[in-house]
């Protein structure tokens, strides 16, 4: 936060800063500096690994931790089975990785680490990241679709029962809606995460500036803002889960299109 300017910059939290000494790393001319964003990807991966590791005891009668991990895998498994059917099982590793990676990133980014002087960074609030994940999901849909159905996959753009004269009109619309999918998928997560974090930051600036302006403003502005923040924090936890779920759900629905056409 730009404390030296005496005010809170709500966008500063999204700034990507290379961690000291890695600014110049590059591959084939492309910069690959190890940034705070990359650091939080690393943290997410490690925490997720530890979480899933706790579920690897493979006991017949599961403990609490194993039960928790199994309920996540079961959740993804059920979602894929409900949306795709028996063939959905082979996508569990991908959708599980996607869901858990986004979920943990969202939740870790919400940790109140600023209290102890660290700066949590939510890399899912960057459309570079969500966009890449969306394109990845979209590519899987395309690859599976063309692999399984060949050129017949294009029949996806002609819904069942379309009257013949309507096809020239319907097909482009369907095609556009299909091509918009990766954008809507990536932007949804990015916007939801960014909006939540900006809102929290703005409210926190109300708390800080209001309190600094005197006791009266502190009670009038700071306290209500603080109470609102507590509520919005809970809401953000919910949004973190929901957005991860939506991303995984939409991915599974799109894979269903590729797997089963219509």
């Amino acid at each position: 936060m730009a404390a030296e300017e005496g005010k809170v910059d709500p966008m500063h939290q999204f700034a990507i800063e290379p961690i000291a000494g890695t600014e110049a790393w590059e591959i084939a001319g492309y910069n690959i500096a190890f940034t705070n964003s990359a650091l939080w990807m690393l943290i997410t991966t490690v925490v997720l690994f530890l979480f899933v590791m706790g579920g690897m005891k493979r006991q017949l009668v599961p403990g609490r931790w194993q039960m928790m991990v199994e309920s996540f895998t079961g959740f993804i498994d059920n979602m894929l089975e409900a949306n795709i059917g028996k063939a959905g099982r082979k996508y569990v590793p991908y959708v599980f990785s996607l869901f858990m990676f986004i979920l943990f990133a969202n939740l870790l980014g919400l940790l109140p680490l600023g209290v102890i002087g660290l700066h949590p960074f939510t890399f899912t609030s960057h459309f570079t990241v969500t966009g890449i994940l969306a394109i990845l999901s979209f590519s899987i849909v395309l690859i599976v679709g063309f692999w399984k159905h060949g050129l017949h996959f294009f029949s996806l753009f002609v819904p069942h029962g379309t009257p013949l004269p309507m096809i020239p009109v319907i097909a482009p619309i369907e095609f556009i809606s299909f091509m918009v999918r990766p954008f809507s998928l990536g932007l949804r997560l990015f916007v939801a995460m960014m909006a939540g974090h900006v809102l929290l930051e703005v409210l926190s600036s109300f708390v800080i500036d209001g309190t600094n302006a005197g006791i009266g403003f502190g009670f009038l502005v700071g306290l209500p803002s603080f109470l609102l923040m507590i509520g919005i924090c809970a809401l953000e936890l919910l949004v973190a889960g929901i957005q991860a779920y939506v991303f995984a759900l939409l991915t599974s629905l799109y894979i269903n299109d590729a797997e089963n056409l219509h």
Partner: peptide, 24 residues
């Protein structure tokens, strides 16, 4: 490019190590 690279690295680790290795 840095975002892409590190996301590929860490999501790759997540997918291959956790998704393919542990989840099954």
């Amino acid at each position: 490019s840095s975002q892409f690279f590190w996301l590929a690295v860490f999501f790759g680790i997540t997918f291959f190590l956790i998704g393919m290795g542990m989840v099954p």
